[in-house]
């Protein structure tokens, strides 16, 4: 099951510079485990404790996963996942 994951500039140190990588999983949580297996260290940049980091946005087919079940969001073959750090500050 192939899911394309778009990687933001700041996380490309984990993907040898690749702008997108392929992963698999039936849910976002499983996909992140799969990414971690191939790109060690990336999980910690996405997840804090049991949840997505507050200032990391993840979209499945253009939908912010915060509105679709967070890490439990289900995935299917051909889905496109995009990771974007928030543009935010004080």
């Amino acid at each position: 099951m192939a899911i394309e994951v778009r990687i933001p500039t700041i996380l490309r140190t984990y993907t040898d510079g690749a702008k997108s990588v392929t992963g698999s999983g039936g849910s976002l949580a499983e996909l992140i485990e799969d990414l971690e297996a191939n790109h060690p260290g990336i999980k910690d940049r996405l997840i804090e404790g049991e949840d997505l980091r507050r200032f990391v946005n993840v979209y499945v087919n253009d939908e912010d996963v915060r509105f679709t079940g967070g890490l439990e969001t289900s995935l299917s073959d051909g889905d496109q996942v995009t990771v974007l750090p928030a543009v935010a500050g004080g």
Binding site: D64, T82, A86, V87, A88, G89, G90
Partner: peptide
């Protein structure tokens, strides 16, 4: 961009607009 935080001490791009922009 719209400051989705609408705050004098914080700013954040709206997540949907952020994706559209990128």
């Amino acid at each position: 961009m719209v400051n989705a935080a609408g705050s004098p001490t914080f700013y954040e791009f709206d997540s949907t607009e952020l994706l559209g922009l990128y």
